[in-house]
Design a protein around this nucleic acid. Sequence first.
DNA 1: GTCGTGACTAGCC
DNA 2: CGGCTAGCCACGA
Length: 99
Amino acid sequence: MNFEEKVWLAIKKIPKGKVSTYRELAKAVGKPKASRAVGNACNKNPFAPQTACHRVVKSSVEVGGFAQGTKKKILLLKKEGIEIKKGKILDFEKRLFRF
DNA sequence: GTCGTGACTAGCC
DNA sequence: CGGCTAGCCACGA
């Protein structure tokens, strides 16, 4: 099982309407300091859109980046019921999904 | 094996 | 609070 595979698998577990952070995700795969690597894995995930990379955000409640454009990311999240204001997630702690 | 890069984080000033 | 630095991990050249 590659690192990236674990990342994608973990992301798939995130239920609709919830989000997770790169940090939590990194921790979930056993490398709490691999937040950057997590971002890498998401960016080139071959399972999109099955793998909901747009549900992964930074630990600072900001949405972070997105290969298809941050605006698109925000739009997708909004469609799932998550409200975002100026790149920040509202009710972040309530929407946060912990593994 | 090394270097550069990135959707990151935490600590300092 | 904004900006900078260093540490972190995986990947491709």
